[in-house]
Amino acid sequence: MSPYGTPGGFGTPAGPTVFDPATLPCDDNVNAYTFCVELKGSQWFLQKGKMIAYYGSMEFNGVGHGRLDRLVRTSFHSPLHASDWVVAEGSGKMLLADRAFDVNSYDLEDGNLTIRSGNLLAFQPTLALKQSIVPGFLTLIGTGKFVAASNGPVVFMEPPIRVDPQALVGWADCPSPCHHYDHGYMTGVMGGLRALTGLGGASGEEHQFEFVGAGTVLLQSTETLLAEQATGAVPSGAGVPGAGGTHTSPSQTAGTQRLPGQLGDLQRRFGL
């Protein structure tokens, strides 16, 4: 199905596929970049700024809206996130999209999936949203549908696998996410020399996230990350990762602190 006009189609008023509420899909993709949600008196949580158009009558309320207190209490466990989310309710069809990134829906059945916070667009209230222990990630638990964006189609891989931090979209079930450092590279004479002088460059791949165990790892092709949504500060307390900081900055949450000898992007471009 091509959404585009056929060349020279002078006979048709418009080449591309024209949608109306009857022909738009229900809770499915219109194309790779646009997702259509049908509301029949039901509710969806959605991130602000992701609704591009709708038919029908709908109401959008900030998550802090008093009437929604009960819903928020059962499904939304990320209070400091609240200002980024709205609840859509009513009846009709609405289109969701995010900066022309690929969007896809995922069904969870009594399951869990952890996803980079900037990638999550919308979810059904039958799912519970919680902050992950891993900074910058959110976990969805329960049964229901959610919609997420990715830079290019998402690729599903099975552990064991090592992943560039910036290519990680999320993971499902219980692989154990941990850091992996390429010690062979960082130590030894060359490693020391690089650390001291910055000469010789770095491969840029000294640090990965490692996943082992049963589950699925979701990958995207990117180094330009989707804007990190602040997951909110974690209450400070002993043993809570990331506690104490205010908002985790993108560079920290992405886990891309520069290692000694690893040069910036500008230098990379100029080959130094």
């Binding site: 959404p3 024209v18 591009i52 158009a53 709708y54 038919y55």
Partner: peptide
């Protein structure tokens, strides 16, 4: 358009509401 445009028909029984930032064109 930034990403392929979706073309939506507006008729008397189907008015449409659009986010200004996603609007590209109309005829």
């Amino acid at each position: 358009s930034d990403g392929p445009a979706v073309v939506l028909r507006v008729s008397s029984q189907y008015p449409l509401t659009v986010d200004p930032g996603a609007y590209v064109a109309h005829q």
